[in-house]
Amino acid sequence: MANITPIKTDEIPNGPGAAAILAAGIGSAAMGIFALAGDAFTSLNHFFTFYKPTGGLSGVSTSAVIVWLVAWFVLSRRWSGKNVEMGKVVSVSFALLAVGVLLTFPPVMDLIQGK
């Protein structure tokens, strides 16, 4: 993923696209991980209660969005104007997206927690 190649002047480098895609994967996985953590631990659920009427969902979603935006910002700066190994980035991004989808599915959450 970190292998960077020089770009040809007539093409748009894939770095900015790769940064956006990987960050979306990271944000999705963060959503799943925070949702699971909030469900599994009462203390974390209290921590994630940023807005009382919405409960733990307010902190879980806000934290995931922050992780996504920070990841996007950092990766964009790192990969701006560069070409990266897109195959690896896409594979990792889809894997992270799958983590997000699975960990937001209540039966999987319950299975992990041994409920």
């Binding site: 748009i12 696209g17 959503m31 969005v65 997206l97 937001t104």
Partner: peptide, 30 residues
């Protein structure tokens, strides 16, 4: 919880299309 994946994904989709547009034809993996 799962609903939040949609705006994150669609924001990325819109950004990438804005950045590459028809040049996506040359970027199969993206």
């Amino acid at each position: 919880h799962v609903a939040w994946l949609a705006p994150i994904a669609m924001t990325m989709v819109a950004y990438v299309f804005a950045k590459y547009g028809p040049a996506l034809a040359k970027q199969k993996q993206i």
